[in-house]
Simulated assay, not measured.
Amino acid sequence: MEKQLLELILPKGLLDHFDIEKIEQGTEKDDRPFIRIHLAEKNQIPRGYNPNEYESKGFHKAKTLVDFPIRGNFVYLHIKRRRWRHKQDPKRIISNDYSHLAEGTKMTAELSAFLKDTGGDPDRIN
């Protein structure tokens, strides 16, 4: 039920690719209420790559994005993107490209830019 509610609140399609790790609610030092939603990318290798050639090697450093406030609470999305390393050439790192999520969707400019910056370039080392 929690996931269904979050699907109504979060940018469309985000939960198709990311799992909710935890949700925190609290108050900042200056008494501003907040909700922190921690998301981790699902273990789905980028389309077009052979899963026998790559292995999941953890996550890139999490990014924190500010989303629309909910009921007077500041909303922070902590997003961790997964990375895959080529088994024979460890310098070849790939990641999923989520630019399709950012196009035609109502979301913050910050989240849109983050999703467009994911790129699946195998020669790119993040």
Rank of each mutant, 00 (worst) to 15 (best):
K42D: 08
L10S: 01
L5D: 13
Y49L: 14
K61A: 09
G119P: 01
S112V: 01
K29H: 04
P51Y: 08
E28K: 11
D117I: 00
N52W: 06
G72K: 12
R47P: 00
Y76L: 11
D16G: 04
I94K: 01
E103N: 15
K87Q: 07
I20G: 01
I94E: 00
D67H: 15
T118E: 03
H17D: 07
R36F: 02
D67V: 01
Q4T: 08
N50V: 12
R36T: 02
F74M: 13
I20C: 02
F18G: 00
H60S: 05
D117A: 15
Q88F: 09
T108F: 11
D97S: 14
E21L: 10
F18W: 04
I45E: 03
L77R: 00
E110F: 00
D121P: 04
T64V: 12
A113F: 11
D16A: 13
K57E: 09
K12P: 01
K106I: 15
F114C: 05
T27D: 04
R82L: 11
R85E: 12
Y98K: 02
S112C: 10
G26P: 06
K29E: 10
A109W: 08
I9T: 09
Q4A: 06
P90V: 11
G120K: 05
T27S: 09
L14R: 01
G58M: 09
I79E: 00
Q44C: 02
E103A: 15
F74V: 10
A62Q: 04
S95F: 01
I20F: 02
E55N: 09
R83E: 12
K61C: 00
S99F: 14
F114T: 03
H17V: 04
P51I: 07
D117P: 01
K12L: 04
F74Y: 10
F59Q: 01
L101W: 02
T105M: 08
K63N: 06
L39D: 03
H60N: 07
I70M: 15
G13V: 01
D121Y: 11
K91H: 13
G26C: 06
F59N: 02
L6Q: 04
D16V: 06
L65I: 14
D117S: 15
F74K: 15
E21H: 05
R36K: 14
R82K: 13
R32I: 09
I93Y: 01
P11A: 03
D97W: 04
L14S: 00
N52Y: 10
K91E: 07
S95P: 01
N126A: 14
K42V: 05
P51E: 12
D123Y: 15
I35Q: 09
P90D: 13
R92F: 03
R83I: 11
I20N: 00
F34H: 05
P11S: 06
I20S: 03
P122W: 08
A62N: 04
R47T: 09
K22A: 12
L77S: 08
K116N: 14
G58W: 06
I93L: 14
H60G: 03
I9Y: 12
W84H: 05
K80C: 05
Y54R: 03
I94Y: 02
I70P: 10
G26S: 07
E7F: 01
